[in-house]
């Protein structure tokens, strides 16, 4: 793992009208790191990812991927591989065509495209269906296609928004192993997910987003120890602890109006 950060954000903020989706986010993720990006529904994970991938412009603040500003799309995109919440694939193509399409767009050598497609299809157990139209695929098969597409061109930074959604346990394990391999080859993985055990197993660093703000950050082990109880908790305890309204506990009785609902 080398120490020059591959993803940095500086007071990154996105507002939709009066609704703040992401608030003053500061991140510095070294290359080769596996960053587990957690947060309840609507916390702002997807919004952050869309800003990092240049698909939406921040309201305030800046961010850099491999030193390139996210306002400069042509400079950023050679470095990233991105799997959005909904896999970006065409129903009327077959998986093989879709992947060849992507490889062609990334300007990979045709032989390399074939090799990568063959090995990744095989790894994700999709070889038998690779020549059927994507419109006939199950949810998990589509997800696998999108995942292969995000990885096949060997980007420096892989950004995955809920990569295991819809996958069977076998495929989820493949995803876990693949992520570990990527990190071993110095690829940075930015992983948004709700599957805490996955994060616990693979992440070198975890950030928890709550209501657009980063409320906890650190290596999973350090986070688990920081629990107020002093005892070793699970990541789930930490998650629930930092993402519930702290003003709620014990304050109902102190409410001046005295109303208890």
């Amino acid at each position: 793992m080398n120490d020059s950060p591959s993803i940095t954000t500086d007071r990154l903020t996105k507002r939709y009208g009066s609704n703040t989706a992401v608030e003053q986010l500061d991140l510095a993720i070294p290359s080769g790191a596996i960053y587990g990006f957690l947060g309840p529904n609507g916390a702002g994970k997807t919004t952050t990812i869309r800003m990092l991938t240049t698909l939406i412009t921040p309201t305030e603040g800046t961010a850099h991927i491999m030193g390139e500003s996210i306002t400069d799309r042509p400079a950023v995109i050679p470095h990233i591989g991105y799997l959005p919440e909904k896999p970006p694939i065409y129903d009327e193509l077959t998986a093989r065509e879709q992947l060849e399409y992507h490889g062609g767009l990334c300007d990979m050598a045709p032989s390399d495209i074939e090799d990568q497609i063959t090995s990744l299809l095989d790894r994700f157990d999709l070889t038998d269906d690779a020549d059927d139209r994507i419109s006939t695929y199950s949810k998990g098969m589509k997800q696998k296609t999108g995942l292969i597409q995000a990885l096949m061109h060997r980007p420096d930074v892989v950004i995955l928004d809920e990569p295991t959604s819809g996958l069977d346990p076998q495929a989820a394990r493949t995803v876990r192993d693949t992520i570990n391999e990527l990190a071993a080859s110095d690829t940075t993985v930015f992983l948004s997910t709700h599957i805490l055990p996955l994060v616990e197993e693979v992440a070198t660093e975890v950030g928890i987003l709550y209501d657009g703000e980063l409320v906890a950050e650190g290596p999973p082990d350090a986070l688990k120890e920081r629990m107020e109880t002093g005892e070793e908790g699970t990541l789930e305890d930490v998650f629930l602890d930092v993402t519930t309204d702290t003003t709620y506990d014990g304050q109902a009785e102190a409410d001046p109006s005295g109303k208890i609902e």
Binding site: T53, L55, I77, I89, L105, C106, Q149
Partner: peptide
């Protein structure tokens, strides 16, 4: 449209 987020993050405007 269906794959726009991939296209935008893969090829430049020129291409």
């Amino acid at each position: 449209y269906p794959s726009l987020s991939m296209t935008l993050t893969t090829v430049s405007g020129k291409q």
